[in-house]
Design a protein around this nucleic acid. Structure first.
Length: 872
RNA sequence: GCCGGGGUGGCGGAACUGGUAGACGCACUGGACUCAAAAUCCAGCGGUGGCAACACCGUGGGGGUUCGAUUCCCCCCCCCGGCACCA
């Protein structure tokens, strides 16, 4: 055993031993309870970043802890290996994406192994392998049969940089989620998944997920966006230039406030609405207004403050219940993409309609009364929205009906006239999955002139993606690859063309967890093993997937369930969204007016005498630089830290320990080089202590310990109890600090070297190593073995705190006077309540409050904690 | 605007179901060791006043409940994340 903490050797040796013994292979069947711990698989971009290290360390701590708690643990790893960066790298370096991808995988796998994660590598998969994506295609065909997948031509979001279609979820603030490019509208055919058909289940089943963070569930619920109301039509006989009735003479609208329908004084339609288009034909000023609306809508940032503007079309429609003529306006606040692209306007009971009516002098008619309130302009502001749910007035046959009764009656009447009914509106849109890209899973369809779109028969799956293609940046190279495109129609045998679109890569990641859990059969997507392991007990990943990946995976699970493939309907029982890793950003304005960024290691902090940071200066010139606060690690800001150099300098255990110690897992982690050193220092001390103790005899604990040894032992067992509790809470930072407390106690008794200290130290160290092992497994395993505690710490049982070690003969009790701390007293553990009260009152720091004739009103004794003497 | 999460020393962060606020670490200060530095070890470290004993203040602000509030209740301010002319 070496004296200096030899982290490089021990980490390598431990990793090789784990590899040789296949220590982390999950058992196919077991009497133990199962624990499926999954971290979101990485995209093989080239090398790991700190976010990966944090993500996988969290998963590994939980996996190793559950191993020791006696669970049959599955922790797999794989690669989300299709996607655009591979194509872009291919264009730049003139190598096929496959080569680039597999080289990255090889390097990153090595990195993951060098971090010592307890991964069952026998279940590794990459989504770009035909054995995997075959089942994308197979399930796609099943979905096609069930009508869950279908083809349509629709206006889509087009990312001009990636030259592909994006799903609604993938457009953020009008820009592509990956490229940040402004999204354009294009009309092209593609395949869609009917996720809206599952909207209600996806919403309802959020209640089955108590182990998910509230905010993720809220985000999903918002995204699904259910609104319950009435869809109905105003009638008209407006014809287009060819003489045909527009929309069959009906102007459809959707409302959640059908009870206010008798208060309609106008309708507003979106700029793109057919009625607007028609009215603009001989009204140049309306045409101009419509153009302005269309342009304005791009400026997302201004929307919230945008003035409500509109223009009369001169057209009228007929109210379905009152038969009154209602004017139609074009409003810049009406969205073509939501509902029907048209709204009924009830200025008396809707904030926007009110503002609009005031601006253009349109009539306002009150039809709802709330309590004794009477409607007035001034009072109105105070009680719109839900507060304005009252009873109907000025509404003929609906007068005096409450909200619900009115909606029901009105919906029924509209239904009788065949002009509307109750309806549920969703914000969620169907999931478009066609991508005009090369490096993805081919959509298994063949286009035949005679037979149309023909599914590829199951026995011809997978449709293999040619791996030797080098894209040149001008669209999808598959289009030009005749050996791929040209094929025979499976139905009639005539020459036909293969579909060249590939699937959205979110398809690949929507079910990988169930494949890991299976036996990797070549003739089945999943099997009975999948039902054994699923659902995932703990899923760990970034919050950025709160909607996209997590919603798609939930949808996909329900589809697989409905196809009878699996028996679960929610894939992830518990979800932990880890926080981001941030680092300091330093910059300086250059002479030319640009910004020069400084890496943190190029900067020295300036402190005052109290240790407070008062500034920073660059090492190269000693001149001040600005501290821009904390931000995510990025190349452009030069504040990234490479995990590889961290591992090389301090070792994997230090990297892992620091990641766990610096912040609770859900919070952002603020990088600090000196804190990393502090973590390394701690592990060095653990090693030194283990080294020193290895030459001390191991003996039985004596029946009676000195008070100093007893208190050290108590501290260790208390820290263990707390640490186990914190692990169950997934609060790893305090588990790490618990390990530090244990070591502090051990070093103290080592220094004092009282008789029998070795016995307490051996017990304490064996506890410390076990509690440390999920976080820093290499050092824990090495010392465990070196000190002869056992062969494999992973197979050691999680230690149980000994109650007897935690009891004290004497307690220090806090003594309060009127709730304020005034001193402490030592009390025997068997002391009666009365004797404690007497002792407390006798203290001089209590007596002095009784000098001015005040008396003791009451004494509260909290066992083992404090005494509060109430004086008055 | 709506929804979710926060606000504690110079910093990261602790505090179990209301019970000694600041665990653990970082930074800083002083000391030991050293020719010296680094490393290591020891001590101190919320603020104000005081030689000290000690006193007062202190968990974003204000109020309340309680013997006792970082913790529970009400009002307000600020920060982060998400959603949003959603009809």
């Amino acid at each position: 055993m070496q004296q200096q903490y030899p982290f490089r050797e021990i980490e390598l040796a431990a990793q090789q031993a784990w590899d040789n013994q296949q220590s982390f292979k999950a058992e196919a069947t077991s009497d133990k309870p199962k624990y499926y711990c999954l971290s979101m698989f990485p995209y093989p971009s080239g090398k790991l970043h700190m976010g990966h290290v944090r993500n996988y360390t969290i998963g590994d701590v939980l996996s190793r802890y559950h191993h020791m708690k006696g669970f049959n643990v599955l922790q797999p790893m794989g690669w989300d290996a299709f996607g655009l960066p591979a194509e872009n790298a291919a264009i730049q370096n003139n190598v096929p994406p496959a080569k680039w991808t597999f080289e990255n995988i090889a390097y990153m796998r090595k990195q993951l192994k060098s971090l010592g994660f307890a991964i069952d590598w026998s279940r590794e998969l990459a989504t770009c392998q035909p054995e995997y994506y075959k089942w994308n295609q197979w399930l796609f065909l099943r979905m096609l049969e069930k009508g869950i997948a279908y083809k349509k031509t629709q206006v889509v979001n087009w990312d001009p940089v990636d030259q592909t279609v994006l799903a609604n979820e993938q457009v953020i603030d009008g820009r592509g989620w990956r490229t940040g490019a402004l999204v354009e509208k294009r009309e092209i055919p593609g395949y869609y998944f009917n996720i809206t058909g599952y909207a209600q289940q996806l919403l309802d089943d959020l209640d089955k997920l108590p182990g998910w963070p509230e905010r993720v569930k809220t985000m999903q619920a918002n995204w699904i966006g259910k609104s319950v109301g009435v869809r109905f039509a105003f009638t008209h006989d407006i014809k287009d230039s060819s003489g045909a009735l527009i929309d069959d003479g009906k102007l459809w609208v959707f409302t959640t406030r059908a009870d206010t329908i008798m208060g309609v004084t106008f309708c507003a339609v979106a700029a793109e609405h057919p009625l607007a288009t028609l009215a603009a034909q001989n009204k140049p000023e309306l045409q101009a207004f419509i153009e302005k609306c269309k342009q304005g809508s791009v400026m997302e940032a201004d929307i919230a403050t945008m003035e409500k503007e509109g223009m009369d079309t001169g057209l009228f429609v007929t109210h379905p219940l009152t038969c009154e003529q209602v004017p139609v306006w074009v409003g810049n606040y009406v969205l073509m993409t939501y509902g029907e692209g048209a709204v009924m306007a009830v200025p008396a009971h809707d904030e926007r309609d009110f503002g609009f009516a005031k601006k253009y002098n349109l009539p306002i008619k009150q039809v709802i009364s709330v309590g004794d309130e009477t409607f007035s302009d001034a009072a109105w502001q105070e009680w719109y929205g839900d507060k304005m749910k009252g009873v109907c007035v000025n509404s003929n046959q609906y007068n005096d009906l409450s909200y619900e009764a009115a909606v029901n009656a009105i919906a029924a009447d509209l239904n009788t006239k065949n002009l509307g009914d109750k309806q549920i509106n969703w914000r969620l849109r169907d999931w478009g999955v066609s991508r005009q890209r090369y490096w993805g899973c081919p959509i298994p369809i063949i286009h035949c002139d005679s037979c149309g779109d023909v599914p590829v028969p199951d026995d011809q799956l997978p449709v293999k993606l040619p791996e030797d293609c080098v894209p040149d940046g001008s669209g999808n190279p598959l289009n030009k690859l005749e050996s791929f495109v040209n094929c025979a129609c499976p139905k009639c045998g005539k020459p036909a063309k293969r579909e060249t679109d590939t699937m959205d890569t979110f398809v690949d990641s929507s079910w990988y967890y169930s494949r890991y859990a299976s036996s990797f059969k070549t003739d089945a997507m999943v099997d009975e093993q999948t039902n054994y392991w699923m659902p995932v007990d703990q899923y760990i990943g970034g919050i950025e997937h709160a909607i996209l990946h997590l919603l798609y995976s939930r949808f996909w699970s329900k589809v697989m369930r409905d196809l009878g493939l699996v028996n679960y309907d929610e894939p992830f029982a518990n979800l932990l969204t880890q926080g981001m890793v941030l680092n300091h950003i330093f910059s300086r304005r250059t002479d030319k007016g640009g910004i020069e960024y400084f890496a943190p290691e190029e900067v020295e902090l300036v402190h005052d005498e109290g240790g407070k940071t008062i500034g920073a200066k660059a090492l190269k010139d000693g001149l001040p630089v600005d501290f821009q606060g904390m931000g995510t690690m990025s190349k452009s800001k030069r504040n990234g830290v490479d995990p590889q150099s961290l591992i090389e300098t301090y070792g994997a255990d230090t990297a892992r320990f620091y990641m766990m110690f610096a912040a609770p897992p859900e919070q952002t982690l603020e990088w600090s080089d000196s804190s990393v050193e502090g973590s390394h220092r701690f592990l060095k001390r653990v090693w030194n202590f283990g080294y020193a103790l290895s030459s001390e005899a191991r003996s039985e604990l004596p029946s009676k310990l000195t008070s100093s040894l007893a208190s050290a032992r108590r501290e260790i067992h208390v820290a263990l109890k707390q640490g186990s509790h914190d692990l169950n809470k997934q609060q790893f930072n305090t588990v790490a600090s618990g390990c530090m407390k244990m070591l502090n106690a051990l070093e103290k008794i080592q220094k004092e070297a009282e008789q029998d200290w070795q016995a307490v130290a051996h017990e304490g160290l064996s506890i410390l190593l076990r509690m440390l092992s999920p976080i820093a497994p290499h050092i824990a395993q090495t010392l465990w073995k070196e000190l002869g505690y056992g062969e494999d710490i992973l197979k050691a049982a999680w230690p149980e705190p000994v109650e007897a070690a935690m009891v004290q003969d004497e307690f220090e009790l806090a003594v309060q006077v009127n709730g304020k701390l005034r001193g402490t007293i030592m009390v025997g553990s068997t002391a009666s309540k009365e004797s404690i009260e007497q002792l407390a009152v006798a203290q001089h720091f209590v007596q002095k409050f009784l000098e001015d004739g005040a008396s003791v009103r009451k004494i509260i004794v909290v066992p083992n904690k404090l005494v509060n003497v109430v004086v008055g």
